[in-house]
């Protein structure tokens, strides 16, 4: 028994050497916490981004001024675009943590089934399509973000791109039918991802209370409906000629 006690003491020492946050993140439960907390940030971003985007319905000047206001956050107090870049770095950091935790948990879970998996098709009773396809909807959203940035932020995927001319860029890109379809499909994948994530995060961070529990699912559905309908309305409005130059 003596050697096991020494082993135990060694492992406690090794554990203490690492900072608390690394120690916590190295566990699967910790990674789920990280995914939930970064998920909350990303959900907040999705809502804020959509609220800003919906300004296209208020006319070209309105949305162009909104984009300019984002670049000019902080006014004369700080260098131009600095606050915007801070927010972008924060977003990128949250997204990186979310993706890293997701990939390592996905890998862990794949290994956990063992070398011989079930030979019979599993009957799912509680798992939803949204929960089972989180990895795939997540990858879809990642690829979509790459396209979305090169379409409306950097410009190469949009032949009529003019820097700062937000309204014209949106109309130009959504007038192309394949692009409008691509956006709608990607937003539906994002919706499925949000539907499970916005509910699941409460479990991961242990917010579970009989009085509050019935609202967790309703909140997830509400957020999903807002994000999906809001985002889809823009390509549809361009396609149906409601938004035009």
């Amino acid at each position: 028994m003596a050697h096991t006690e020494v082993d135990k003491r060694d492992s406690v020492k090794a554990r203490r050497k690492r900072p608390f946050i690394i120690e916590f993140y190295s566990s699967d439960v910790g990674k789920k916490w990280a995914m939930a907390l970064s998920g909350i940030l990303l959900l907040g971003y999705l809502v804020a981004h959509l609220l800003g985007n919906l300004k296209v319905f208020l006319g070209p000047e309105n949305v162009d001024l909104y984009a300019e206001a984002l670049r000019d956050l902080g006014g004369e107090l700080v260098p131009r675009q600095s606050i915007l870049w801070l927010m972008r770095i924060g977003l990128l950091l949250a997204y990186s943590i979310h993706v890293h935790a997701a990939l390592s948990l996905w890998w862990r879970n794949r290994k956990a089934r063992g070398s011989v998996g079930y030979q019979t098709r599993t009957t799912y009773l509680a798992a939803t399509y949204a929960s089972r396809f989180m990895a795939y909807t997540g990858i879809t959203v990642f690829l979509f973000i790459l396209f979305h940035l090169s379409d409306l932020t950097w410009g190469p995927a949009n032949p009529d791109f003019v820097y700062g001319d937000v309204y014209a860029n949106i109309v130009a890109t959504f007038e192309r039918v394949p692009v409008a379809i691509l956006y709608i499909v990607a937003i539906l994948a994002l919706g499925a991802h949000v539907r499970h994530g916005a509910w699941s995060l409460f479990q991961s961070i242990g917010i579970n209370n009989a009085k509050f529990n019935k609202w967790r699912n309703k909140l997830a559905y509400g957020l999903t409906a807002f994000i999906v309908l809001g985002n889809i309305s823009i390509p549809l409005a361009v396609q149906f000629g409601i938004l035009k130059l």
Binding site: V29, K31, L105, A112, A126, A127, M134, S200
Partner: peptide, 20 residues
Amino acid sequence: VDEMEKWFGACSNHGECETA
């Protein structure tokens, strides 16, 4: 939890366990 993670996967909040 540390011992559990040596052997088993992580929770995705599917809820299948509760039903089974």
